[in-house]
Design a protein around this nucleic acid. Structure first.
Lengths: 203, 203
DNA sequence: GTCTATAAATGGATAGAC
DNA sequence: GTCTATCCATTTATAGAC
């Protein structure tokens, strides 16, 4: 196993992981073919196995990267003092995460997880905890009147994340106009379809 | 082929299709196992092939059913005279479709399609046309001031459908409280996170 | 580390008896 | 129409030469 032989191996693993994430994004994990990943990484199928243990490891590494990105979003949002500002910042950061060329394939992989293996189930469990923490943030925001109080925080959290999670299916980060779409998505989460000119949530 | 032998065969196909839709919902089409479908339908794997041509036919039939349901939603929404009312009615109907015990597995199947085969690509094409028609409805609603005009109708359409499409991943129609979740989802699409008490779109 | 060749396993689909 | 047994294509993963 070449993980420790000087740093080159790490980059090889990295490039294979990037190729895998793109393949997973395009076809879905189950329909993805390890041979396609190898070709995309400029390797034969068997050479690929010198850098990676197998398909499942690529899934696991990809999911970990997605979850680490979400961790960072939450960490930054926790720094906000006002509950409404924390909610708004989290939404902005997760939208950014979901529409960033480098991070989208990993987050999309996480979104598509259904619990078909232990790896997937443990990723789902971590996702569930994000939902709960976001719900707590929303509850605090509700208590100061920053967001609507006519539904439970958990339902609100799932609806918000649902809107954001759906972005990966149609947003193409390399196309022009992504910044506009990001801003639109944030405003949609905050105010929906209805006529604008309503004040955004604040502390 | 037993399709015409008296009506029984049709019901056999139907029960296999229902079992398949549930299996597709739980594991995703690619990870779904035809053997599981057979067992769930109370058949051996080979008996199943007396009622169905193969896995792909189950995909095709499932996608057609989902698309037919969406067709009905649009047909009903087109009957509304006022643009804002048409938008609102479409949202209500699609949310209902997405959270109905009998229809959710089929709609979820459609949502998960990535274009990995001709069947999937043609379903995606039909979905794309729904997006466009909804965008046209939204454009009319914008022109009478019923919905926000600070983003393009197509982006707005995709954000709306995205929010609704994401419901399938966590709403369980047989659990109590689904009616409340439906109402919440509609209100969220209309007004987002922001504080409520804003008039809903009309005329 | 890379390759060709091949093993091993999975899973969709079929044969043919009852 | 249903079953057991089997086929066979596909695909993950490994062996072993260079």
């Amino acid at each position: 196993m070449p993980e420790t032989t000087g740093g080159r191996a790490v980059n090889d693993l990295e490039s294979v992981l990037l190729a895998a994430a793109d393949e997973f994004l395009e076809r879905g994990y189950d329909a993805a073919r390890i041979g396609h990943v190898a070709t995309a990484a400029g390797l034969s199928k068997s050479s690929l196995y010198h850098h990676v243990e197998g398909k499942e490891q690529l899934l696991q590494l990809g999911l970990e990267r997605a979850l680490a990105g979400l961790d960072e979003c939450f960490a930054a949002a926790r720094d906000e003092a006002e509950p409404g500002a924390a909610v708004r910042r989290l939404i902005e950061l997760v939208v950014e995460d979901m529409t960033d060329r480098a991070r989208l394939p990993f987050v999309a992989l996480l979104i598509g997880v259904r619990g078909n293996s232990d790896i997937e189930r443990s990723a789902l469990e971590r996702r569930r905890r994000f939902d709960l923490e976001f719900a707590q943030m929303l509850e605090r925001a509700q208590s100061v009147g920053a967001v609507r109080s006519d539904m439970t925080p958990l339902v609100l959290a799932r609806l918000c994340f649902g809107t954001i999670n759906a972005l990966h299916a149609w947003v193409r980060p390399d196309r022009h106009g992504v910044d506009q779409i990001r801003a639109d998505a944030v405003r949609f989460v905050l105010a929906g379809l209805g006529h604008d000119s309503r004040p955004e949530p604040t502390g």
